[in-house]
Design a binder for these strands. Structure first.
Length: 487
RNA sequence: GGUCGGAUGGCCGAGUGGCUAGGCAGAGGUCUGCAAAACCUCCUACAGCGGUUCGAAUCCGCUUCCGACCUCCA
């Protein structure tokens, strides 16, 4: 099916028809995590959002190369601008371990977390430390083009010079004067010539552990450099989509564009997609504010802001119920609402498996299918898609209740629709069905109870039902027999 | 302080000029040994004040409140 997909491009602040540079191939680069601590739920939202985008593009038949980096070096602590200390190294000194030990620990944690959320792995996951040579080469190109200068073994990007014939604020829509005037004076001894200049290569202090030889000094790359070097290497000078959290847009992505323009006169990506923040009580979730929780805390409910735990798929569903460009506010009430809604959807899907077709159907699924595609084609509008899926759930339940008839053709289409959109596109799965022998055991208990019921021995049947309820299982008697659900 | 964005029913959250999503909660009903589920019906909101328009949650202006970025940040 041909689909016209529209995506919101931050570069032009509007939705645009998605036309890949060289179809059917699509290249996406997403800025990944800095692996110096556990990823919190806000970080997860971004990667779940891009997972949705990756999944949908793949579903549409594109051959997607999805590159998501891991920053394992060169990322500085904030309090001194480029004078700060490497985040990873700071942590390493604290724990008296090798920097790469920290990197390893939190990379594994990140991968585990992504897997729990059913986030598909990217096609390539390059690391900064694995691409030092490429980064040095890029610095050389920018120097050769005259947009950088070296001071005491460090190399800085010359924003003022670049701005003479380039629009530095093309992405963040701010003019140079504003940026210069409103840059906070951070007070540290700064060898940069211009306030907006940023480091491409930083000379390491003697005590610095992570450092590499370069033409300028024994040092390490500036943070913005890795994404330019690695996206160029794996996706080319120009590729289709560059993404990341919206907080990366004003500085990190602005500088990436400057680096690419300075070295090869090309804006690296055609479409810039930015995902919005997860908030708690209206404020951005972040480590520094202390309002972040780790996925594990969310699953167990072990956090002062949480009333109870929620499963990973419930959390994923909760996030997909909001559009990726909107802020999403976390609350227990909202989570509980999502938990119940998600359960309703899953319940309908399991009913769908056993549904019988009629010769004379009264419903046509194809308009519903079209609305599902329309929703996703409108800038990956998953909340609207989910609303349509609830319409599907209503149809499924009505057919089961015998209030609506569906023919074989439409039933097949409905099953295809639910499978493709719920599993493939939204990446939601039924966690309950995953592992065990529980269904067999439950079948036996249900049969025992039904025997009691047919003997009108309600004392026994209620004892079973209420007993199961107390340990977390709800029985439901219907026309087609008894079903059960975990509460 | 500067720049940008937001304010939707009890809660969450879609929606860029008329057709006024969806989920949760609440009310009533149907079904049912009971319970649960499901289905049907109801609850119809767009921060405030002006303006444009035949018509505005949606466009414009002002006001109030909130947030993000400007510094590492998904």
């Amino acid at each position: 099916m041909e689909q016209k997909l529209f995506v919101y491009n931050t570069l032009f602040r509007k939705k645009e028809l998605f036309e890949p540079l060289s179809p059917p191939h699509v290249g996406i680069y997403v800025c990944g995590p800095t692996v110096y601590s556990d990823v919190h739920l806000g970080n997860c939202r971004t990667f779940i959002s891009f997972d949705l985008i990756f999944r949908y593009l793949t579903h549409l038949g594109y051959k997607v190369r999805y590159v998501r980096n891991v920053t394992d070096a060169g990322h500085l602590e904030g309090d001194g601008g480029d004078e700060g200390e490497d985040k990873i190294e700071k942590k390493a000194k604290l724990a008296q371990v090798e920097p790469m030990e920290i990197v390893q620990k939190y990379t594994i944690d990140f991968h585990d977390t992504m897997k729990v959320f059913n986030v598909l792995p990217p096609s390539i996951e390059p690391t900064a430390t694995g691409h030092i040579i490429e980064q040095i080469e890029l610095v050389q190109k920018i120097l050769a083009a005259g947009f950088a200068y070296e001071i005491n073994g460090s190399v800085y990007f010359d924003v003022e010079k670049y701005s003479k014939n380039h629009d530095y604020g093309i992405l963040n829509r701010r003019n140079l004067e504003d940026m210069i005037n409103n840059t906070r004076d951070l007070g540290g001894q700064d060898e940069k010539l211009g306030k907006l200049d940023f480091a491409l290569w930083i000379k390491a202090k003697p005590e610095h552990l992570m450092k590499w030889p370069s033409p300028w000094s024994l040092g390490f790359p500036g943070w913005h450099l890795e994404c330019s070097a690695m996206s160029n290497k794996y996706l080319g000078k120009q590729f289709d989509i560059h993404g990341g959290g919206i907080d990366l847009m004003p500085t990190h992505h602005t500088n990436e564009i400057a680096q690419s323009m300075a070295s090869c006169e090309k804006i690296p990506a055609k479409y810039w997609i930015h995902t919005n923040m997860l908030t708690v009580n209206g404020q951005k979730m972040s480590k520094s504010l202390g309002n972040s929780f780790l996925p594990q805390q969310l699953f167990t409910g072990d956090h002062s802001l949480l009333n109870k735990g929620y499963t990973p798929m419930t959390v994923r569903f909760f996030m997909l119920q909001a559009h990726y460009r909107s802020t999403l506010d976390f609350s227990n009430e909202a989570m509980e609402a999502s938990e119940k809604g998600f359960k309703r959807l899953l319940n309908a899907i399991s009913i769908l498996e056993g549904l019988q077709a009629s010769a004379d159907g009264e419903i046509d699924i194809s308009p519903l299918q079209k609305r599902c595609y329309d929703a996703m084609n409108d800038d990956f509008n998953s909340p609207v898609l989910i609303a349509e899926l609830f319409e599907a759930a209503r149809i499924i339940n009505s057919v089961k209740d015998g209030k609506l008839k569906i023919d074989a053709e439409n039933l097949t289409l409905l099953r295809k629709l639910m499978k493709e959109f719920v599993e493939d596109v939204l990446g939601l799965k039924n966690e309950q069905l995953a592992n065990n022998d529980l269904p067999k055991v439950m079948d036996m208990i249900v049969n025992l109870r039904n025997e009691a019921k047919s003997n009108k021995d309600y004392a026994t049947s209620d004892k079973i039902r209420i007993g199961l309820q107390q340990i977390g299982f709800q029985l439901m008697d219907g026309k087609e027999g008894t079903s059960w659900n975990k509460i």
